[in-house]
Simulated scan of single mutants.
Amino acid sequence: MASREAQLVELVDADGGPTGSATVADAHTAPGRLHRAFSVLLLDTEGRMLLQRRAAVKTRFALRWANACCGHPTPGDSLIEDAALRLREEIGVRDTALHRAGVYVYRAEDPATGRVEHEYDHVLVGRVPVGAELRPDPEEVAEVRWVAPGLLRDELAETPDRFAPWLGGVLNVATDAAPRLPEAAALATE
């Protein structure tokens, strides 16, 4: 399998329309090229969110806390299927229905590496039972923890540099979608 940096991502315009493709490495080289991505939020049946601390080897925002998993759909592939595959690979969660909450578009430069995230980020939400088995890939994930959304919002406000720069925006998109997504209902109640 080719390295993740050599895999292709779909470049998009400001409205999410496809404009071509580039490698992950090229899309994340300054100044960054807007491309399709996904961020998966997982909630357990008690309403807690799964966070992962990104592995030290990540080329962007290493060792920062982020949502359950992130990735890039391969051009022409199904967004939901690619996100479900990434969730299995990165966290070990299987057979979880993912639902579209909305899109978060952002640009952030990693001060440690100079790499750039400029993403048209599809926010997906899923639910797992309390105590669901997790098998994080140590090449991708340094550690995981479950947190109540209200506590996460407090931590994001108090220590934003501990978190991936997209996490607050992704959480807001999922919270706004909560009335139409039973999987995200806990986000709106805190």
Rank of each mutant, 00 (worst) to 15 (best):
G126K: 01
A186I: 00
L79C: 07
L181H: 06
D161Q: 15
Q7T: 13
R180P: 06
P149D: 00
L11S: 04
I80P: 02
A188V: 01
R53I: 07
R36K: 10
V12T: 05
K58D: 11
A142V: 08
G131V: 12
R94F: 13
N67R: 07
P18V: 09
L167I: 13
R162I: 05
T159D: 15
S78N: 13
A132D: 03
A68D: 12
G71P: 08
N172L: 13
A84T: 11
D82V: 10
H118I: 02
F61C: 03
A97T: 10
G168S: 14
C69A: 06
G16L: 06
V57H: 01
G76Q: 12
D121Y: 07
D13K: 01
L181M: 10
A97P: 02
D77P: 00
A83L: 12
G102Y: 10
N67A: 15
A97K: 04
D176S: 11
T175P: 08
P138Q: 11
D110M: 02
D77M: 10
A14G: 05
F163S: 03
G32N: 07
E109M: 13
A112H: 13
L98M: 09
L124K: 08
A157I: 04
V147A: 11
L34Y: 06
D110I: 04
E117W: 09
A185T: 09
E158W: 09
A177Q: 10
L98D: 04
L152I: 10
G16Y: 06
S39N: 12
E133N: 04
